[in-house]
Amino acid sequence: MGKVFRFGDDVNTDEIIPGRYNVTTDPKALAEHCFFEVRPDFSKTVKAGDFIVAGENFGCGSSREHAPIAIKASGVKAVIAKSFARIFYRNCINIGLPIMISEELYSLVQDGEEIEVKLKEGTIKILKTGKEIKSKGFPDFIIKIIDAGGIVNFLKNHDIGELEDGI
């Protein structure tokens, strides 16, 4: 169970973490500046297990991995959006920040409301109304990466060619 931080469409990586704060690779330091300009209270109020819910094209803009790292280090359990920008989507899967795609959720929850998410099952429950939603699934080879906790962990124990078995 966690609180929803709700954002709009086209949230870009400069908003998630402005370029001038990419002067470190320390996740905690990046988390301190997460959404620093567009939502200055974010890093102070977000708690482990909370969620980001957004509209279309979340994470557009630069390829900086500092953006998903900052979100993950903030304690966010999952980002649930109508759609994701391509590089951001890859980055989240690679670093093990859970993402879910749901067209439906965005219009059903408000900022600050609570939801319960089961990542494996891909279900999202809105506590206020009790409504349960199913998110869109991932292809098999992406599930392999997610199950390993990211691509780096996958490569620790596997050859990259093994991904192809799921292709």
């Binding site: 390829s63 900086r64 590089i87 890859r90 690679n94 670093i95 691509i151 490569l155 990259i160």
Partner: peptide, 29 residues
């Protein structure tokens, strides 16, 4: 590791931007 890697298609190459972990994956494999 830069989103504007898409530029290279002007010469008929397939260039695309990725994050640093993807760069690390290619370093390793």
């Amino acid at each position: 590791g830069d989103s504007h890697t898409c530029t290279y298609g002007a010469l008929g190459a397939f260039g695309t931007g990725v994050g640093s972990t993807d760069i690390g994956v290619s370093y390793a494999t």
